[in-house]
Design a protein around this nucleic acid. Sequence first.
DNA 1: TGGAAATATGGAAGCGCTTCCAGTTTCCGG
DNA 2: CCGGAAACTGGAAGCGCTTCCATATTTCCA
Lengths: 344, 344
Amino acid sequence: MQASPRRQPTLDEVAARAGVSRTAASRAINNNPHVSQAKRDAVQRAVDELGYVPNPTARALVTRRVGAVVLAVSSDEPTLFADPFFAEVTVGVSSFLEQTDLELILLLAHTPHGRDRLQRILSARRADGLMLMAVRGDDPLGQLAERTDMPVVFGGLPLHSTPRWYVDPDNRGGGRLAAEHLLRSGRRRIAMITGQVDLHACVARELGFREALTLAGAPLVALEVGDFTLPGGEAAMERLLTAHPDIDAVFAAGDNMALGALRALRRHGRGVPHDVALVGFDDLAGAPYAAPSLTTVHQPVRALGREMARMLVDAIDGQDPNPLILPTHLTVRDSAPEHRADQA
Amino acid sequence: MQASPRRQPTLDEVAARAGVSRTAASRAINNNPHVSQAKRDAVQRAVDELGYVPNPTARALVTRRVGAVVLAVSSDEPTLFADPFFAEVTVGVSSFLEQTDLELILLLAHTPHGRDRLQRILSARRADGLMLMAVRGDDPLGQLAERTDMPVVFGGLPLHSTPRWYVDPDNRGGGRLAAEHLLRSGRRRIAMITGQVDLHACVARELGFREALTLAGAPLVALEVGDFTLPGGEAAMERLLTAHPDIDAVFAAGDNMALGALRALRRHGRGVPHDVALVGFDDLAGAPYAAPSLTTVHQPVRALGREMARMLVDAIDGQDPNPLILPTHLTVRDSAPEHRADQA
DNA sequence: TGGAAATATGGAAGCGCTTCCAGTTTCCGG
DNA sequence: CCGGAAACTGGAAGCGCTTCCATATTTCCA
């Protein structure tokens, strides 16, 4: 390995030094079988001596493989990505890609201009594949993704269609778990705080939640809409408490909203879980640290990212991986214990 | 704009259609002055009709500009990036890059293999510039970054050297603010929870904190080491309470650690702020939602990312931007109010 | 009105790599 | 010792774009 030479050595120089043709050098470097061991060794030596590193751009030009994938998060508020949820997904994606030689291009498209950029990236084939997170019902990204011939993996289903490749947590099942748990612990005046209503995840969580309530013959006393943020959850809880002061349980479709709700409950002097039991969704890192610690539906966020990446890589390799639903489970903590008596 | 043609049109086809040479077409597209308006228009028309999008790879091959920058976060635990802090920085970076036509390559280098990848990216010039976050004292990335001839912007100073380009919050000043606040509110038995000791940010925060204590003639009763995580802060607080049950104030060098500490304090029945006042650092989104809400040193995290990106772009453009220290300020909330009496 | 200066133009040479294709060599069984 | 299969080898043709350079064309002022 040389100490940063002024100019990167090229394949030609490697070939010359190794005393082989450029073709042979290229083959040796790419493990193409049509080279003798002798040349292979000679090339290897030359590579080491020169500190040669193939120019990915030149390679991409001819192979038509860029060696990069895009993870796009579309939202109106730039803040969305700051949600630990996305960070965790990103970690998952990245941890899988680390095993490949694909790079991760992160695209936070929160303006029309940002979406244009994604559009351009797609039409210019600046990436080999695309992961799309949490597409809203009216998001043009959905159709945009359908039109490209680049493999696209959805993280979370879009609202109105079922794409070929997606990874989705079992939102419906998770919603059901939350309801069953609250019912089991004796709650009957149950409300819910959902997220953006045009997000499949919210619809599914609500659906599952309602399902279980209906099965038990319990009503959903009220439904308020938040936006997956702490202040959003807080405001929704405020509205809930104003309109229905007698509720004894709340299911928030996201931990952040649950944490926001917790604050509103605290301010209103409602004891959690004594007066009101609270269940979140996500099981983010902060959930055990809330006061009281948050009972929540756990979804494997990092695995979600990892599997999205794996699926995309498979798709790029010309396979046709199966869509994936990841299991959720309930993590019981203090904000909604098994039995009401535990806390009363 | 065509409906996704089987093959992307090339510059040659645009030129042919516009009835000009390829050279002229290229110039028209790149706003090179050496083209007549007439040809410019003709080319524009052809571009529109064909839905032509320049091939960035081919362009990069000749211009030697890749059109991408790397944001690298190096750490042993893959979890680090999941810290809302980094997510927020990323949002800042991304929001600036959105105005340019640079792409953001995210590299979470938490294994030796990950660092190799970064190394390869640098030597293969797969990016035009590099942003490096929170480099630890012994991190090989530091030297690696010095050896490359690609512009490198540091987010947070490295421990032992002062790079040419960096953006750093005023950690020392922030530490000072925390100490002054605690002293002002009448605390005297003060401890600190720092992060990794080979991180410049921690050293600087501690330095500032100690400075202000010394100036007031107050001792630093104890110092425990955490790792910027919730459990890390919790454990550090446990140790603190065991060894020094009489402390009446704690400064945690990060909000996550402060939140962890809060839990330990709660478990030990210590009232916050009545028995122990708690000050964090960062002012993450969750700080106002803790119970009690967290007094903390605010640092402009998103601005940090934005300025890193701006600085890098300037550096890539051949300018020599000045390093930047961003101001911090104290956000007073309930965990450490102005006056002890407020809460007693 | 005559050129010098300014402006426009396109041919051709690459950027660094992969890969087709047409040979050349090597290896064996007959 | 021969012929064909199998294994190598390297020349050359691009991938799609920018840009140098030499050549037109126009402009403008003395």
